[in-house]
Simulated scan of single mutants.
Amino acid sequence: MSILICGSLAYDNIMVFPERFKDHILPDKTHMLNVAFLVPEMHRNFGGCAGNIAYGLQQLGATPLPMAAVGADFDRYAERLDELGISQAYVLRDDDHFTAQAYITTDLDDNQITAFHPGAMDQNHRNVVPTDGTVAWGIISPDGKQAMLDHSDQFKSAGIPHIFDPGQALPMFNGDELRGLVANADWLTVNSYEWEMIVKKTGWTRGEALAGLKGGLIVTHGGEGSKLLTADGEADIPAVRPERIADPTGCGDAYRAGLLFGLERGWNPVDAARLGSLMGSIKIAHNAPQGYSLDLNDLTARYKTEFGSAMPA
């Protein structure tokens, strides 16, 4: 069966400024800031949370269904999805908008200035979660606000287990909205900063958050690994040491692809989170969110080496 990934399909425009922002920004002039950075190096990558998670699932051999709204400039991305064999059955085309785009400029100190244009993404509420029994699992990743609210209710009404992964969309929601989104979900996945934001907005303790989740809570801590919490207790998921650090963009999406793959197959959640950790490590060793490829035999062998047990079938 399929895994429905509600979120964005986007182009990531990555520019490298071969100097330091701080050398060109005068602290006493920030009230009238007017700067230009020459960026001789630029890359345009296929991205967006729905696209990145779908790519990871496709590499693992799953059947991903990205659900996203895209614009008039989507043709090249559509060709790539066709080449990968990823269905576009739930990709809504709106030619009155551009596809979502991120413009990220990085300096020599790895500081970043990012501008994000949502474009057609804000139309994704026009997509509806299918109820024909073809979808086994789902995830709500960063998207237009109304789409995230609607798809959450639709997953619950259809009885489809799903992950709520608010990510950078978290600031859009108030405490009551977050309580409802978490109550509808089976799993909540956040990084440590996002978890603190949820606590501040909802007033919850971890126990109170877990009480509303059928599965559990995963809090990631970057290179320090992640923590999996359920009603039965806690488990520490170690970070897998990468072969090299090339590009962190999309590591969280790769983690979620591994997690979804395991949960859809009925694995113990610890094993699913371990696969997520391994996927994140593989991704960070490659440039671009979808710049890695998997050999499943190598993946299985590495899983056993890293975690001391065989990867479930």
Rank of each mutant, 00 (worst) to 15 (best):
L9T: 01
F261T: 09
N13Y: 08
L33Q: 13
L217Y: 00
L275R: 01
N268K: 14
P27S: 03
G71H: 02
Q168I: 14
G207V: 10
T99W: 11
V91F: 13
C49M: 09
V128G: 02
D122Y: 12
D82N: 10
R126A: 11
A100F: 02
G262L: 04
W137Q: 07
E243M: 09
I282D: 03
N13D: 11
P312R: 04
E208K: 13
D94N: 14
E224F: 11
A185Y: 02
L9Y: 11
R206L: 04
T202V: 05
L57R: 06
H43C: 01
R244L: 12
L228I: 12
K201M: 11
L217N: 11
G276V: 06
A209T: 04
I245G: 05
G61M: 06
V39K: 01
R302M: 07
G167P: 06
L178C: 00
N174A: 07
R274N: 12
L228S: 11
A310T: 14
F261Y: 15
A89Q: 15
A239C: 10
E83M: 12
D94W: 09
Y292E: 08
L38I: 15
L229G: 05
S141A: 15
L299T: 06
V182G: 06
M197P: 09
E41M: 12
L26F: 12
E79Q: 14
L108Y: 05
L33F: 02
H31C: 03
T30A: 00
S87I: 01
L213H: 03
K145A: 13
T300P: 00
K200N: 12
A69M: 07
T105Q: 04
L213Q: 04
N297V: 15
L210W: 07
W267V: 03
L81R: 01
G7V: 04
R93L: 12
R241D: 03
A10C: 10
Q58Y: 05
G225Y: 01
A285G: 14
F155A: 01
L210D: 05
G175N: 13
V16I: 15
P161C: 01
L278N: 08
V199Q: 05
I3Q: 10
T300L: 09
A285R: 05
N191T: 12
V129F: 11
Y103N: 13
A169S: 15
P27V: 09
M197F: 08
F155P: 09
